[in-house]
Structures are given as C-alpha cells and as structure tokens.
C-alpha cells in the first residue's frame, strides 16, 4: 500500500467494512503498529519513532472519529475538552491565551463562548461532531484524519459538517485523509480517492476517472450499489 498526500488536499479512502481503511488511518497516526513499510511525514520517517518521539508529530495529525457520542468525555465540559490537548502540547503560551483560543475555536466551528461550560450530553450529534473538530483544530494540525466523520449524522446535519470542513480547509490550508464508505460524500469532498478491498488498493485516482472508468470488478460493483444514482 503506497500513496502520497499533498498539502491542502483531501484524499478519500473508500471501501466496505473490514477493508482496512480505518486501520490504515490508525497506522498513519501511530495508533496501530505496522508490520512493514514506512510513513513519511515532511520527509521524515515517523513510523519508526518511539511513542515519546512521536508526540510532537501527533499534534499535527489528529483524528476525528465516527461516533461523536463516545469520543468526548461525558464528565468534562466542552471548554475543558478543547483546552486539554493544548495543555498537553503546551500550545499558545499561557492558560489565559489558551482559554481565549477555546472561545475562538468554538466560534470557528459555529458554536459560541456560552457553550464552554456545558457537557457533551447537552449537544446534538452534529454539534458534538463540531466540538470534536474544534478539539482537533486546537492543535493547529496540518493533516486531519476524518474517520467516517459524518456517517452517524442525519443528511441535513451531514451537509453542514461537510461545509464546515471545506471552509476550514480553505482557511487553514488543512489536508484531510477522508475515510468514508459513502462514495457520494467522497465524490463531493475529495481531490483524489483510493478504493480499498481486503487490505489492498483496488484503484486510486481523480474521482471523475474512478467513477467513469472503474478498473476492477469490485470498484464497479461498489459504484453500481450506490442507492438513487
């Protein structure tokens, strides 16, 4: 498995459950040990680093998960949840400037300063996903790994979260590794996409090429199965 990801690019990873797309994302973020090969970040091999040496890299490559319900600590207020990663990585000078940054981030993702004192259960799924995005942005990342980020959301909420991701990319020049089983979402979001099956790459290319000229039986079936084409 080999591919490159460019600054400001959205790279889509598509495939069915069990195809290895989540594992690939986790392997890049150093959350799963790798067996062979390498991951180069800014031309340095990061896959061989120890956990401690990887820490400064981790802040550049945060993950946002599918389930906004289980990825926020229910006993932490939203303000604390967004503050925590900045404290761990000692970002933005002192505590006061960090707190200002929290308010900033909430506003960036369409929430307000009043939300800092509330707990996760007081928010809807879409709002929680915005909070998770704000938490990832707190690290001033270069590359965000979005693992099925809108799959648990209603279609109308899905659209607002996808719009937010596009805006943030424009604003901060972020790259996304966008993992999704939904090909129509991938088509809208991604500059290039890779279809995976059983841990292997089936096809990689520009979305319009993959859709117009599927190279394997598997990719063709996957495209044919999209409901309401």
């Amino acid at each position: 498995m080999s591919f490159d990801l460019f600054p400001g690019e959205t790279f889509g990873l598509a495939g069915e459950s069990g195809c290895g797309k989540t594992t690939l994302g986790r392997a890049i973020a150093h959350l799963t040990p790798i067996h062979a090969g390498a991951v180069q970040y800014k031309e340095a091999n990061i896959s061989a680093l120890t956990e401690a040496a990887f820490r400064p890299v981790r802040k550049d490559i945060p993950l946002v998960f599918q389930d906004p319900y289980s990825s926020l600590n229910p006993r932490m207020t939203i303000g604390e949840a967004i503050l925590e990663p900045m404290q761990i990585h000692r970002l933005h000078g002192n505590e006061r400037t960090r707190k200002e940054k929290v308010v900033d981030l909430l506003e960036t993702v369409g929430l307000t300063a009043e939300h800092t004192r509330r707990y996760p259960h007081e928010f809807s799924g879409g709002q929680r996903q915005r909070i998770c995005i704000a938490r990832a942005l707190a690290l001033e990342p270069k590359l965000v790994i979005c693992d099925e980020i809108v799959s648990a959301l209603d279609v109308s909420v899905q659209a607002t979260v996808l719009n937010l991701l596009m805006e943030l990319q424009e604003k901060f020049g972020l790259s996304y590794l966008f993992i999704s089983h939904d090909l129509s979402v991938i088509k809208q979001m991604c500059d290039r996409l890779m279809v995976m099956n059983r841990g292997r790459m089936e096809q990689i290319g520009y979305p319009e090429d993959v859709f117009a000229r599927p190279e394997t039986e598997y990719v063709r079936n996957l495209i044919d199965a999209i409901p309401g084409k």
């Binding site: 080999s2 591919f3 490159d4 460019f6 991951v39 800014k42």
Partner: peptide
C-alpha cells in the same frame, strides 16, 4: 487549476509499501 497548485507542492505525507497485520 486547484490540482495544478496542489500537486506542485511536495507531499506532506508519504505512505510507502505499508503493511499492517
């Protein structure tokens, strides 16, 4: 034109022959 600017840069991340078992 977006592609032209995007792919003129050096890649930020390179995955090479990655195997996870």
């Amino acid at each position: 034109s977006r592609r032209k600017t995007l792919y003129a840069n050096k890649p930020v991340l390179q995955v090479e022959d990655l195997v996870v078992r």
